[in-house]
């Protein structure tokens, strides 16, 4: 199971990297969202994927259970999903607002903060 998940994680990473190469900001948003999910899946896989043994410690058992899926990475992912969701919502709105007020979703044309030619750029000193 881990093996197939690892390949899937790799594929999603590749897809998100491809998306993030784009000049279109909306593809960039999708790429970042995919990347976030790839990471969550990666951490999920790192903590072993198994459903045979529940991670419950029997009564009077002292020691470490073997063969269970580690619940801690799943708790970590839960945190990461919540954070990732908030950030995704933010960049989605940001992209929309930027598109509305800048009139473009091509990152090459977004040059208001960094103009190509500055006026009066000649300092005589």
């Amino acid at each position: 199971m881990e093996f197939y998940l690892t390949i899937l994680v790799g594929l999603i990473f590749a897809a998100s990297t491809y998306m993030m190469q784009s000049r279109s900001v909306i593809r960039l948003v999708l790429g970042v969202a995919l990347l976030g999910n790839a990471v969550n899946l990666l951490i999920f896989t790192v903590g072993r994927v198994t459903r045979d043994i529940p991670p419950i410690i029997p009564k009077d058992f002292h020691g470490t259970l073997t063969g269970i899926a580690n619940p801690l990475p799943q708790a970590l992912i839960l945190t990461a999903i919540v954070i990732g969701f908030a950030l995704f919502a933010f960049v989605l709105v940001l992209t929309y607002r930027a598109y509305e007020s800048l009139g473009t979703d091509n990152s090459d044309d977004m040059r208001i903060a960094e103009p190509e030619k500055t006026q009066a750029s000649k300092l005589t000193y």
Binding site: L28, L35, V39, I43, L94, A98, M110
Partner: peptide, 30 residues
């Protein structure tokens, strides 16, 4: 306008940075 333009670049690159931090943390736990 200028703030939105700057924020797009700031947001995406920083988001990428923290995502890589998360990847590294997950693998380190592994």
């Amino acid at each position: 306008k200028i703030q939105l333009d700057g924020a797009v670049k700031y947001a995406f690159l920083n988001l990428l940075g923290t995502t890589f931090f998360l990847i590294a943390t997950g693998l380190l736990y592994g």
